[in-house]
Amino acid sequence: MLKKRIIPCLDVKDGYVVKGINFVKLKKISDPVEQAQIYQDQGADELCFLDISASHEKRSIMIDIVKKTADRCFMPLTVGGGIKGLEDIRSLLKAGADKISLNTFAVNNPILVKKAAEKFGTQCIVVAIDVKKTANGNYTVFTHGGRKETKLEALSWAKKVEEFGAGEILLTSMDRDGTGKGFDIEITKKISDSVSIPVIASGGVGKLQHLVDGIVKGNASGVLAASIFHYGTFSISEAKKYMNDSGVLVRL
């Protein structure tokens, strides 16, 4: 059977891995290529690079990081952040990325998601959806690394990107990101149950049980975390063992 995926995420800014709390306060951690290699050795199922400040800063450095990583890590690699057009997608794929994650770009030009899926294949187009729960209990989509609120409601947006040919949804709760309080299960489950493409839960992992919850309660196909792995709180192998012991099918 297909196994549930554990995906360490490396938030990259100016060539360094950083990690923030609720998307803002950034702390510099390490070299992304070295960190990617460590995760590969620990048995990560995939790697995810998010160029978190890319929407408004230069980012040719990212291409170089992707190349170096793809040269030594024989595993799937997703890259996102600051994609502005089909040409950006092509150059990242050429550098060695397997999947491209689109957020601001997708919201501004939904039709280009369609074009990108047609051109490069559904399998390599991930739409990243950053959501925040509003006072009335609805979930609103944010762009620009969480700095800009949109008028989009999360569930209908998720259905729309599926229709446009996204092959996967990377769902991040901004309320939970960096807090260690666990995924927002409510929205994860809601979206996972309503679309037929895989959904990856992200934002808020602090304990290994949170990873299990994302799969078992949130019905996600995979779980993504940054801090717990970066800071060495847990290794990927420890996380997998815990999930396996909890009855989640993982690749050991």
Binding site: L2, K4, R5, Q123, S196, P198, V199, S221, R251
Partner: peptide
């Protein structure tokens, strides 16, 4: 009721 594409590791 499995997601399509099949994406991930299978034995």
């Amino acid at each position: 009721n499995l997601p399509i594409p099949q994406m991930g590791w299978n034995n």
